[in-house]
Design a protein around this nucleic acid. Sequence first.
DNA 1: CGCATTTTCCGAACAATGTTCACTATTAGA
DNA 2: TCTAATAGTGAACATTGTTCGGAAAATGCG
Lengths: 205, 205
Amino acid sequence: MSTTSSPRTRRHQRTQQAILDAARAIISHEGVTALSMRAIAERIDYSPAGLYEYFDSKDEIIAAVCDEAFDQLTQTLRSTDPTLPPREFLRECGVNYVRFAIENTDAFLLMFTNAPLAAPPDAPAEVMLRQSPAFMVLYDAVQRCVDAGIFTPRADYDVLAMAITCWQLVHGMAMLTVTIMRTRPPDLDACRRALDVLLAGIAAQ
Amino acid sequence: MSTTSSPRTRRHQRTQQAILDAARAIISHEGVTALSMRAIAERIDYSPAGLYEYFDSKDEIIAAVCDEAFDQLTQTLRSTDPTLPPREFLRECGVNYVRFAIENTDAFLLMFTNAPLAAPPDAPAEVMLRQSPAFMVLYDAVQRCVDAGIFTPRADYDVLAMAITCWQLVHGMAMLTVTIMRTRPPDLDACRRALDVLLAGIAAQ
DNA sequence: CGCATTTTCCGAACAATGTTCACTATTAGA
DNA sequence: TCTAATAGTGAACATTGTTCGGAAAATGCG
């Protein structure tokens, strides 16, 4: 039902999107610290106060940017070549995770640091669910390995636990690459080897 | 030669330490967002301007707090029971890494997000070296496994690569635990199992 | 000791931030 | 057409990090 929206509603949504686009542009061009209400307003020829007609606060804008970034991450993971054999497919999913972090460093740091800090501690499942689509791609890839007989789940280490371990490793690779080791040129082949090691460990269980 | 310091120098260092203690207390009690120059000053009965006699900026205070936290992390890793067999020792080092992140969440997030973002991109080795003592504990633990014949390094996956992979996994576990999964109660046993899987993978190389 | 210099420390101020409020203009619907 | 909701602005407020001029205290030197 996208045609049921009135012209006013469409204008509203368009301006809302313009705000998010401006915010994303500022973040990627001048860094997260340069993101301010006034900077966003100036970029889309608005008054700072006018933004509050579309978002209740700066944190809400940041949260919306994070939501978009999570969608983009999910799409990146889904772009992994599905014709690859199960094990290589899972590995390349991890590589793409790291690649996303490298190519969208500011957004990546934003969604995994600022956003969870801003979120109130009473949002248990919602925050977890927001990035679950991205996680599901990994989960399904692990499931494919199980179906192919490469992994054999056990009572104390089931498919979910396997997927979480994979997520943890790729997240650690991504996080360390864009923070502490961001001075060194990123090495995706090293990530590939590390993932091979972990997958061998899971297969050996 | 700590006795060669003049009374004035000692007072200076003591005030400097009081500032850092106040900053750490604010961070752990009210969160990172509540850390302000005025809050620090008020806590140690100073004027906000007075702090600039001891630190050039707020970022410098944060950097100093991070340095202390890195020392604390190193100490936590070094507290791992050295009588454990090589493989269990390495695993418990990783568990302690995660435990530190859980028990010092704000400090942990600070040193791995705010600090590297504040650091200028022209400090290549210095930032890397700052946390190298903590990394060295992990590296040495891996080396012990190699010496015991549990791990066998190769040309394209040497001891350093092994240690980095371990670091990446534990860092990912820690990071995800204190950000996205911080609503769920942390499960150190699950971390232990995941580490066992990775170590099995390294051993199988 | 007496004086000059350095070190501390403070109050006031500045620029920039997120946000609110009173107010006007525009639009939508009965 | 009239009413109510929506868009949008400019001015203001509180809070932030930081600077500056000056006062008080400590230090070193003759």
